[in-house]
Amino acid sequence: MQIQAEERGWLRLRNAFSTLMENRNFLGFLLVIPAEAILFIFLAYPFILGLWLGFTDTVIGRKGDFIGVGNYVSLLKDSTFWLVTYNTFLYTIVAVLFKAILGFVLAIILNRDFKAKGLVRAIILLPWIIPTALSAIVFWWLYDSTFSAISWSLIKMGLINHKIDFLGDPTNARISLIVANVWRGIPFFTIGLLAGLQTIDPTLYEAAAIDGAGSWKRFRRITLPLILPLLAVITTFSTIWTFGDFQLVWVITKGGPANATHLFGTLSFQRAIPGGHFGEGAAISNFILPILVLCVLISFKYLKRED
């Protein structure tokens, strides 16, 4: 009797449990817990601390006082900050644009069968895999005003007659850094988009070809609409990374010449750490947030429409 009752109790419990596990809300909550726990402890909490820092005049090793929007007001009056804002947008827009175009083109080129496809794909991933800290050093060496191999070959070819000052001139320095960033970012686009391209049913193209559509039309009417959601996601991520770039610039120019290549990330670091003004550094970082949120919301809205 008792045993039976106990068994029945267990059974009921188990049934209740499985019903619970079928409940979308409960299961949903349960499944996101691991991700949220990690993000809360190591991201949200320090982030709130960082947000708070931006409203204080904290310097290294000294507790700051709350100064409201003091940091933000003083930044808005700082011409360096405006220059850096301009740099960051220029850098992000140009670099992401080139990465997207070149990455897409390369993905289309690779989206066919040929010998050594695997090898070529591995080669293409290389720039993405190598630690940025190290590839930045290589670019730095390639851009050297005295030893640059690029200058050397152009001179030998007779195209120029003196060495290019890659990093000393503001425009050159910006171009040089963008090239390095594009170099690093192409694989992300290519490999991501290639995966998407391969999911497109080849019969669609065949049907279009029978209807007499040219390759450009096929691209516009079939490839682009089908790949657009993926492209949007990849572009969003790339934008975030580029916007918050730090290492490349820090290694190659340290923000010079005359702050022409400083980005939000590097300026924030420079003012917070070597400069010792934590509060101001945090405030600069906090400026990044609303802009990024805006970018993401736009792409997000776009994705929703595609749904």
Partner: peptide, 9 residues
Amino acid sequence: LIPGTASWL
């Protein structure tokens, strides 16, 4: 000076 010093680290 030699050209290029503006970028020298």
